[in-house]
């Protein structure tokens, strides 16, 4: 359970700001106010949220943990199996394959948006005509409803009628199988993911670039440094904490990728694009193996918590909170 710390810094505040302020204040202060004012019960403000979060977020977590130890099928009974589900997962070829798909997808879906997004941030950091408008256009994919966009991509990937194969034919490249070919399905889905989420990386890195000092560049110019040198030795080191934040966020998001994969391939052809998340969905809502799926959630959750802690660490280094 979350522990809220009321008035954690009460004493310091009393000595540093409130007390001198109060002493110098001419306004009469009621006895009741003095006894309460210096330890405001801030946790009361969070109480409604704590209750709701306990119900819709923390309870599901704990319940999932419980279910992961059960052999539980919808419609059937539940039976305690301890770590049996985890042992079964370790033997499940389909699960292990889905981990491999997830790693393959995640690596590509992190590296490419980071590279393109950082490049885009460098471009949008410069002043140029219509920058605001073009930046809005660039950011649009990440706001667009993933399902809606995924449907259009599906039409574009159509092997016979799709516009992508037509465009390739114009430059003499033979038609591709896109998401219909087990060999190209994951890179193709990565392409959609890159299209969707490169803007987020751009925004994070752009935020970092906005805070860069001017002096190092001025002295570097005097020393006759060229653009590449300035990027490599000044910009990149300074903005690196922000890139780190983007890398962690991208990793978490790529691990969670679901909507577009589900809409475009549903894990197919066969199981060629079945990632951890799709595997989890199918186990739970196709095969109704609730306990088994919950064990997958628990594994997922451990990975996410570790990455979240890494993110907190990266954030602290970038002092990135407004």
């Amino acid at each position: 359970m979350p522990r809220v710390e009321p008035g954690h810094d009460g004493p310091e505040r009393m000595t540093s700001t409130s007390l001198p302020a109060r002493l110098s204040s001419a306004a009469p202060v009621s006895a009741a106010a003095t006894s309460q004012d210096f330890t405001p019960r801030y946790w009361l403000f969070s109480l409604p949220a704590v209750l709701v979060i306990a119900a819709v977020i923390v309870f599901p977590w704990l319940f999932t943990l419980y279910m992961s130890t059960q052999d539980w099928k919808i419609g059937g009974g539940a039976e305690f199996v301890g770590l049996g589900n985890f042992a079964e997962l370790a033997q499940d070829a389909r699960f292990l394959e889905s981990i491999w798909h997830t790693v393959y997808f995640t690596v590509l879906a992190v590296v490419l948006p980071i590279v393109f997004g950082t490049a885009a941030a460098l471009v949008f950091h410069r002043e140029f005509p219509a920058r605001g408008l073009l930046r809005t256009v660039f950011v649009m994919p990440m706001m667009a409803t993933p399902v809606a966009v995924a449907l259009v991509w599906t039409m574009m990937f159509h092997p016979q009628l799709g516009v992508l194969n037509y465009l390739l034919s114009l430059v003499g490249i033979p038609p591709q199988g896109w998401v219909y070919d087990p060999g190209t399905v994951i890179p193709t889905l990565v392409m959609v993911e890159v299209w969707h989420w490169t803007p987020l990386v751009m925004l994070i890195v752009l935020g970092g670039l906005a805070g860069l000092p001017r002096e190092p560049y001025e002295s570097a110019l005097i020393d006759g440094a060229n653009d590449w040198h300035m990027f490599r030795h000044i910009t990149l080191p300074l903005v690196w904490p922000f890139v780190m934040v983007a890398i962690v966020i991208r990793t978490i998001d790529a691990l969670k990728a679901f909507d577009t994969i589900f809409v475009i391939t549903q894990g197919g052809p066969g199981t060629a694009s079945e990632t951890l998340n799709i595997f989890l969905y199918l186990q739970a809502f196709q095969f109704y193996k609730i306990g088994y799926a919950s064990a997958v959630v628990v594994i997922f959750f451990v990975i996410i918590i570790m990455l979240s802690l890494l993110l907190l660490y990266a954030r602290q280094k970038s002092k990135w909170n407004t």
Partner: peptide
């Protein structure tokens, strides 16, 4: 105001957890 950092971390983890779970 209450500097409830632990609660803030809980919120962050909630934000990160896959909706599916």
């Amino acid at each position: 105001r209450g500097k409830a950092h632990k609660f803030a971390i809980l919120i962050l983890v909630a934000r990160m957890t896959p909706a599916l779970s």
